[in-house]
Protein backbone atom coordinates (compact mmCIF):
# COMPACT_ATOMS: atom_id res chain seq x y z
CA UNK A 1 0.00 0.00 0.00
CA UNK A 2 1.41 3.35 -0.96
CA UNK A 3 0.87 5.88 1.72
CA UNK A 4 1.22 9.56 1.06
CA UNK A 5 3.52 11.82 2.97
CA UNK A 6 3.06 11.96 6.71
CA UNK A 7 1.03 14.91 7.88
CA UNK A 8 -0.53 15.70 4.52
CA UNK A 9 -4.28 15.91 4.74
CA UNK A 10 -6.38 14.88 1.82
CA UNK A 11 -9.91 16.02 1.38
CA UNK A 12 -10.64 13.42 -1.25
CA UNK A 13 -13.68 11.49 -0.05
CA UNK A 14 -14.18 14.13 2.59
CA UNK A 15 -13.79 11.97 5.69
CA UNK A 16 -10.11 12.57 6.21
CA UNK A 17 -10.14 16.32 6.40
CA UNK A 18 -9.43 17.73 9.82
CA UNK A 19 -8.68 14.36 11.37
CA UNK A 20 -5.64 15.01 13.55
CA UNK A 21 -4.87 11.38 14.16
CA UNK A 22 -4.38 10.69 10.45
CA UNK A 23 -0.81 9.89 9.51
CA UNK A 24 -1.22 8.79 5.94
CA UNK A 25 -3.77 7.99 3.34
CA UNK A 26 -3.06 5.81 0.35
CA UNK A 27 -4.92 4.09 -2.43
CA UNK A 28 -5.69 1.03 -0.36
CA UNK A 29 -6.06 2.24 3.17
CA UNK A 30 -5.50 4.73 5.93
CA UNK A 31 -2.89 4.95 8.65
CA UNK A 32 -3.90 6.56 11.92
CA UNK A 33 -2.40 7.21 15.29
CA UNK A 34 -4.59 5.76 18.02
CA UNK A 35 -4.66 4.55 21.60
CA UNK A 36 -4.71 0.77 21.58
CA UNK A 37 -5.49 -0.90 24.93
CA UNK A 38 -3.96 2.09 26.69
CA UNK A 39 -0.84 2.44 24.58
CA UNK A 40 0.09 4.79 21.71
CA UNK A 41 -0.12 2.84 18.48
CA UNK A 42 -0.51 3.13 14.75
CA UNK A 43 -3.37 1.37 13.04
CA UNK A 44 -3.31 0.59 9.36
CA UNK A 45 -6.69 -0.21 7.91
CA UNK A 46 -7.33 -1.45 4.40
CA UNK A 47 -10.74 -0.60 3.07
CA UNK A 48 -12.74 -2.75 0.74
CA UNK A 49 -13.16 -1.75 -2.87
CA UNK A 50 -16.72 -1.77 -4.22
CA UNK A 51 -15.54 -2.25 -7.78
CA UNK A 52 -14.01 -5.63 -6.99
CA UNK A 53 -15.98 -8.81 -6.66
CA UNK A 54 -16.54 -9.30 -2.90
CA UNK A 55 -14.82 -12.69 -2.78
CA UNK A 56 -11.80 -11.44 -4.71
CA UNK A 57 -11.73 -8.30 -2.58
CA UNK A 58 -11.55 -10.28 0.66
CA UNK A 59 -8.90 -12.56 -0.77
CA UNK A 60 -6.69 -9.73 -1.99
CA UNK A 61 -7.08 -7.75 1.22
CA UNK A 62 -6.26 -10.68 3.48
CA UNK A 63 -3.33 -11.81 1.33
CA UNK A 64 -1.73 -8.38 1.26
CA UNK A 65 -2.25 -7.97 4.96
CA UNK A 66 -0.69 -11.38 5.65
CA UNK A 67 2.24 -10.54 3.40
CA UNK A 68 2.85 -7.30 5.27
CA UNK A 69 2.72 -8.98 8.68
CA UNK A 70 5.03 -11.76 7.54
CA UNK A 71 7.76 -9.46 6.25
CA UNK A 72 7.57 -7.26 9.35
CA UNK A 73 8.00 -10.30 11.59
CA UNK A 74 10.93 -11.48 9.51
CA UNK A 75 12.49 -8.04 9.60
CA UNK A 76 12.47 -7.99 13.39
CA UNK A 77 13.93 -11.47 13.61
CA UNK A 78 16.82 -10.24 11.48
CA UNK A 79 17.37 -7.41 13.93
CA UNK A 80 16.22 -4.72 11.52
CA UNK A 81 14.23 -2.06 13.33
CA UNK A 82 10.65 -1.69 12.19
CA UNK A 83 7.49 -1.09 14.22
CA UNK A 84 6.64 -3.92 16.63
CA UNK A 85 3.44 -5.74 15.74
CA UNK A 86 0.72 -5.52 18.36
CA UNK A 87 -2.44 -7.01 16.97
CA UNK A 88 -3.80 -8.14 13.62
CA UNK A 89 -7.53 -8.12 13.18
CA UNK A 90 -8.25 -10.07 10.02
CA UNK A 91 -11.99 -9.50 10.25
CA UNK A 92 -11.72 -5.76 9.82
CA UNK A 93 -8.36 -5.81 7.95
CA UNK A 94 -6.53 -3.78 10.61
CA UNK A 95 -2.97 -4.04 11.82
CA UNK A 96 -2.05 -2.36 15.09
CA UNK A 97 1.64 -1.60 15.51
CA UNK A 98 4.15 0.40 17.49
CA UNK A 99 4.09 4.17 17.18
CA UNK A 100 7.60 5.53 16.75
CA UNK A 101 7.68 8.48 19.13
CA UNK A 102 9.05 11.75 17.76
CA UNK A 103 10.81 10.06 14.88
CA UNK A 104 11.87 12.14 11.90
CA UNK A 105 11.63 11.00 8.30
CA UNK A 106 14.80 10.61 6.26
CA UNK A 107 13.32 13.28 4.02
CA UNK A 108 13.55 15.81 6.87
CA UNK A 109 16.98 14.59 7.93
CA UNK A 110 18.40 15.17 4.47
CA UNK A 111 17.78 18.89 4.65
CA UNK A 112 20.51 19.14 7.29
CA UNK A 113 23.96 20.35 6.19
CA UNK A 114 25.98 17.92 4.09
CA UNK A 115 28.67 17.55 6.73
CA UNK A 116 26.26 15.87 9.15
CA UNK A 117 24.78 13.51 6.57
CA UNK A 118 27.57 10.94 6.58
CA UNK A 119 26.39 8.96 9.66
CA UNK A 120 22.79 9.07 8.47
CA UNK A 121 23.71 7.72 5.04
CA UNK A 122 25.79 4.97 6.62
CA UNK A 123 22.75 3.85 8.62
CA UNK A 124 20.49 3.90 5.58
CA UNK A 125 22.91 1.81 3.53
CA UNK A 126 23.44 -0.67 6.36
CA UNK A 127 19.71 -1.07 6.96
CA UNK A 128 18.86 -1.63 3.30
CA UNK A 129 21.85 -3.95 2.99
CA UNK A 130 20.65 -6.05 5.93
CA UNK A 131 17.15 -6.10 4.49
CA UNK A 132 18.41 -7.40 1.15
CA UNK A 133 20.78 -9.84 2.81
CA UNK A 134 17.65 -11.32 4.40
CA UNK A 135 15.95 -11.44 0.98
CA UNK A 136 13.38 -8.85 1.93
CA UNK A 137 12.46 -6.43 -0.83
CA UNK A 138 10.65 -3.40 0.56
CA UNK A 139 8.93 -2.35 -2.64
CA UNK A 140 8.48 1.31 -1.71
CA UNK A 141 11.81 2.58 -0.42
CA UNK A 142 11.20 6.30 -0.24
CA UNK A 143 12.62 8.90 2.09
CA UNK A 144 9.29 9.01 3.95
CA UNK A 145 9.51 5.34 4.84
CA UNK A 146 12.81 5.56 6.69
CA UNK A 147 12.51 7.05 10.16
CA UNK A 148 15.29 8.39 12.34
CA UNK A 149 14.50 7.99 16.02
CA UNK A 150 15.59 10.30 18.80
CA UNK A 151 18.18 7.79 20.01
CA UNK A 152 19.87 8.00 16.59
CA UNK A 153 18.70 4.61 15.37
CA UNK A 154 17.04 4.18 12.01
CA UNK A 155 13.78 2.27 11.49
CA UNK A 156 11.91 1.29 8.39
CA UNK A 157 8.13 1.46 7.99
CA UNK A 158 5.31 0.62 5.59
CA UNK A 159 5.72 -2.94 4.39
CA UNK A 160 2.55 -2.82 2.33
CA UNK A 161 4.37 -3.55 -0.94
CA UNK A 162 7.11 -5.72 0.49
CA UNK A 163 7.85 -9.31 -0.45
CA UNK A 164 10.50 -11.98 -0.18
CA UNK A 165 12.84 -12.37 -3.11
CA UNK A 166 16.42 -13.32 -3.75
CA UNK A 167 16.45 -11.85 -7.27
CA UNK A 168 19.12 -9.26 -7.98
CA UNK A 169 16.65 -7.48 -10.21
CA UNK A 170 14.16 -6.89 -7.37
CA UNK A 171 16.84 -5.62 -5.03
CA UNK A 172 18.31 -3.37 -7.72
CA UNK A 173 14.90 -1.84 -8.37
CA UNK A 174 14.50 -1.28 -4.62
CA UNK A 175 17.78 0.67 -4.62
CA UNK A 176 16.80 2.53 -7.75
CA UNK A 177 13.53 3.71 -6.19
CA UNK A 178 15.44 5.01 -3.16
CA UNK A 179 18.02 6.71 -5.35
CA UNK A 180 15.32 8.45 -7.35
CA UNK A 181 13.42 9.49 -4.22
CA UNK A 182 16.57 11.15 -2.92
CA UNK A 183 17.45 12.82 -6.24
CA UNK A 184 13.97 14.22 -6.67
CA UNK A 185 13.85 16.05 -3.39
CA UNK A 186 17.45 16.78 -2.50
CA UNK A 187 19.11 17.32 -5.85
CA UNK A 188 21.99 19.42 -4.45
CA UNK A 189 23.26 16.66 -2.17
CA UNK A 190 21.83 13.65 -4.02
CA UNK A 191 25.00 12.47 -5.71
CA UNK A 192 27.04 12.51 -2.53
CA UNK A 193 24.23 11.01 -0.42
CA UNK A 194 23.57 8.19 -2.85
CA UNK A 195 27.26 7.34 -3.06
CA UNK A 196 27.54 7.20 0.74
CA UNK A 197 24.47 4.99 1.01
CA UNK A 198 25.73 2.53 -1.59
CA UNK A 199 29.09 2.38 0.11
CA UNK A 200 27.65 1.18 3.41
CA UNK A 201 25.18 -1.04 1.53
CA UNK A 202 28.17 -2.81 0.02
CA UNK A 203 29.67 -3.36 3.46
CA UNK A 204 26.47 -4.73 4.99
CA UNK A 205 25.49 -7.10 2.22
CA UNK A 206 27.78 -9.82 0.83
CA UNK A 207 26.21 -10.09 -2.60
CA UNK A 208 25.96 -6.33 -3.05
CA UNK A 209 28.31 -6.40 -6.00
CA UNK A 210 25.93 -8.31 -8.27
CA UNK A 211 22.99 -6.12 -7.22
CA UNK A 212 24.95 -2.94 -7.92
CA UNK A 213 25.91 -4.24 -11.33
CA UNK A 214 22.23 -4.80 -12.02
CA UNK A 215 21.47 -1.32 -10.67
CA UNK A 216 23.50 0.15 -13.54
CA UNK A 217 21.19 -1.60 -15.94
CA UNK A 218 18.06 -0.47 -14.10
CA UNK A 219 19.30 3.12 -14.12
CA UNK A 220 19.60 3.12 -17.87
CA UNK A 221 16.22 1.59 -18.54
CA UNK A 222 14.02 2.68 -15.60
CA UNK A 223 12.10 0.76 -12.99
CA UNK A 224 10.03 -1.37 -15.33
CA UNK A 225 11.58 -4.08 -17.38
CA UNK A 226 10.64 -3.82 -21.03
CA UNK A 227 8.11 -6.44 -21.96
CA UNK A 228 8.74 -6.53 -25.70
CA UNK A 229 10.07 -9.42 -27.70
Amino acid sequence: MEVVEVGVKHDREGFVKGDDSLLGHGAEGVVKRVKFLGRDAVVKERFSKDYRHPILDRLLTSRRLAQEVKTMARCRKLGIACPALYYVDMDSAKVYMEYLHSAKTLKDCLSEPLSSLQPICAKVGALVGNLHAGDIVHGDLTTSNLMMRTDGSLAIIDFGLSYLSSAEEDKAVDLYVLERAISNVHCEVAEKVNALILESYRQAFGSAKQVLRRLQEVRSRGRKRLMVG
Binding site: V69, R76, G79, A81, L85, Y86, Y87
Partner: peptide, 20 residues
Protein backbone atom coordinates in the same frame (compact mmCIF):
# COMPACT_ATOMS: atom_id res chain seq x y z
CA UNK B 1 16.37 -9.61 17.38
CA UNK B 2 16.98 -7.52 20.47
CA UNK B 3 18.90 -5.06 18.30
CA UNK B 4 15.58 -4.17 16.68
CA UNK B 5 13.78 -3.43 19.93
CA UNK B 6 12.91 -4.51 23.45
CA UNK B 7 12.17 -8.04 24.58
CA UNK B 8 8.55 -7.01 25.16
CA UNK B 9 8.24 -5.77 21.57
CA UNK B 10 9.79 -9.02 20.33
CA UNK B 11 7.27 -11.12 22.28
CA UNK B 12 4.36 -8.96 21.15
CA UNK B 13 5.41 -9.27 17.50
CA UNK B 14 5.60 -13.06 17.89
CA UNK B 15 2.11 -13.23 19.35
CA UNK B 16 0.64 -11.01 16.64
CA UNK B 17 2.29 -12.78 13.71
CA UNK B 18 1.86 -16.36 14.94
CA UNK B 19 -0.99 -17.27 12.61
CA UNK B 20 0.75 -15.82 9.55
Amino acid sequence: ELQAGSILDAALSRMASKSF
